[in-house]
């Protein structure tokens, strides 16, 4: 089967998509976007996270055919004109990764959170309640990192969100 979707801002048509294929299969094997990683078997490691229509999703659990007509953003799509985006730069500056396997997933989850804050800052407390650290934890707990101990990642998230007046 054939699907047409937007990937990192570009309209693409992918042929020979099987009913069995996941979005992660299509991204990695057919579109050669290797940023999103295969980590667990559906237990929720978060390494495969991409953004579909503004929401973070596990691409390994997302039927590829369900992505038809949608807009997908992967870690490869964040760079603009050779410049890494804010979340990527902050991850580097604050050493919020070590081996890097989980990093694209964390970055996309945080990216989704930042965009959510930009699009509707008032929604945050209403939906999630609690303080900004709880909101960050809610956004990131579906991700596993075996190197950093999470603190630099959470600190990075808090720094970026605090600049938006959310703390």
């Amino acid at each position: 089967m054939q699907i047409s979707l937007r990937v990192n801002g570009e309209q693409v048509v992918v042929d020979d998509v099987k009913a069995r294929s996941t979005l992660l299969d299509v991204l990695r094997d057919q579109l050669n976007l290797k940023g999103a990683k295969k980590g667990c078997e559906g237990e929720g490691c978060g390494a495969c996270t991409v953004i579909v229509d503004s929401r973070p999703v596990y691409s390994c659990m997302y039927p590829a055919l369900a992505a038809s007509g949608r807009s997908v953003l992967t870690v490869e799509g964040l760079e603009v004109g050779g410049q890494l985006d804010r979340v990527q730069r902050e991850f580097i500056d604050r050493w919020a990764f070590q081996c890097g396997y989980c990093t694209p997933g964390f970055i996309m989850a945080l990216e989704a959170l930042v965009r959510e804050a930009d699009s509707n800052p008032g929604k945050f407390k209403e939906v999630y309640g609690g303080n900004i650290r709880d909101i960050v934890k809610d956004a990131l707990t579906g991700h596993i990192c075996r190197c950093t101990g999470y603190e630099p990642i959470v600190e990075t998230a808090l720094l970026i969100l605090s600049e938006k007046g959310l703390d």
């Binding site: 929720g44 978060g46 579909v52 929401r55 973070p56 659990m61 997302y62 989850a109 707990t141 579906g142």
Partner: peptide, 11 residues
């Protein structure tokens, strides 16, 4: 709902 990972809640 908040006990479900956000990536699963999206879908």
């Amino acid at each position: 709902l908040l006990a479900i990972p956000k990536e699963v809640r999206s879908v």
